[in-house]
């Protein structure tokens, strides 16, 4: 297929969303190290694929089932910077869970961000179920589920993809291959060469892309979406990059990988590469960049302040919403 066209405005918009996710993430680490928030789990190194994939979806109709690193995806789908900080502080106004879940267990019904749990890969059969329901109702939309490469070893990955394949469902499964599952490297997770190779067992195309190449990711997801809406069924996409931070704020990655390796990966960080390319092509300028950084900084400062001061959940609400208050 021909390369898709991405306009200069789109490039800038994508870059800005990647940058927002990165700057929020960096702020989270500062807040964590300062003792203000108890936990951080990062998407640093995966912003390019997350934003590029999001741009290929329709945020007005599609359902997303993101995993904990998908900050950039949920921001694209309408969660605000303020929402993200309310989540990090576990405040009552947090739209994801009202402070009930750990950070990055995303969910917001109005934006079709499907609520997530901690056991990995349970969202994969849900994505099939949502695609099945949409198909039954004749709706033109897709479900989009993401997960890490280690998570593709779970039974639910197999069961969910097989179901989606058998019933030719409008679903897209994108594996964000960041080379590690906590400390365990890819070579000890799977015996096949590519995660994308698994697709053949489910009767769907398996596409491997460079997760640091925004146009390649955008094109792969766009084609997968077209296929899904055409009734041609689901697609498995493997987007490759690298986890630039430790697994979480509770991890010490120097116990299983070297500083040299991480430094090298930081030097080829997809976000930096994209910036360089946009600068070279004159799409991004120093002025535009400064303006962007200022704007994002202000947005993040305001969100941090708001969230810090916001009310915590009332202990009296502990037992709310176990069941529907309406009965049936």
């Amino acid at each position: 297929m021909d390369n898709v066209q991405v306009s200069n405005e789109q490039h800038l918009a994508m870059y800005e969303e990647m940058l927002l996710a990165r700057r929020i993430d960096e702020r989270m680490w500062l807040l964590n190290r300062a003792g203000s928030i108890p936990f951080v789990v990062s998407g640093q190194g995966q912003e390019v694929m997350q934003v590029a994939a999001s741009f290929a979806l329709d945020k007005e109709v599609d359902y997303i089932l993101p995993y904990y690193r998908d900050l950039a995806v949920v921001l694209h789908f309408g969660m605000t910077t303020r929402d993200i900080f309310l989540m990090a502080y576990g405040k009552a106004e947090d739209p994801n869970s009202g402070g009930r879940q750990m950070p990055n267990h995303f969910g917001q019904k109005k934006n079709r961000i499907v609520t997530q749990s901690s056991p990995v890969t349970t969202q994969v059969p849900h994505a099939a179920g949502i695609a099945l329901a949409a198909k039954m109702e004749g709706k033109s939309l897709v479900s989009f589920a993401t997960m890490g490469e280690g998570s593709t070893n779970q039974g639910d990955f197999h069961e969910g993809l097989n179901f989606a394949g058998v019933h030719k469902l409008p679903a897209i499964f994108m594996v964000e291959n960041n080379k590690y599952a906590i400390s365990v490297p890819l070579s000890k997770q799977v015996a096949c060469e590519n995660i994308a190779d698994r697709a053949i067992g489910y009767g769907m195309p398996g596409i491997k892309v460079d997760g640091n190449d925004p146009v390649a990711v955008y094109q792969a997801v766009k084609e997968a979406r077209d296929r899904a809406l055409n009734g041609d069924g689901p697609t498995l996409i493997e987007a490759e990059s690298y986890r630039l931070t430790p697994h979480s704020s509770d991890d010490d990655d120097m116990t299983y990988r070297t500083k040299e390796e991480v430094d090298y990966e930081k030097s080829i960080d997809g976000l930096l590469q994209y910036r360089k390319k946009l600068m070279e092509e004159g799409i991004l300028t120093e002025d535009k960049e400064r303006e962007m950084e200022e704007k994002l900084k202000q947005e993040i400062n305001e969100a941090t302040d708001y969230a810090e001061k916001a009310a915590s959940p009332d202990p009296k609400t502990l037992q709310d919403f176990v069941y529907s208050e309406e009965g049936f």
């Binding site: 359902y63 849900h126 099945l132």
Partner: peptide, 9 residues
């Protein structure tokens, strides 16, 4: 799981 997804929908 598929049923759960459909129910959430």
């Amino acid at each position: 799981g598929v049923g759960i997804g459909a129910a959430m929908y």
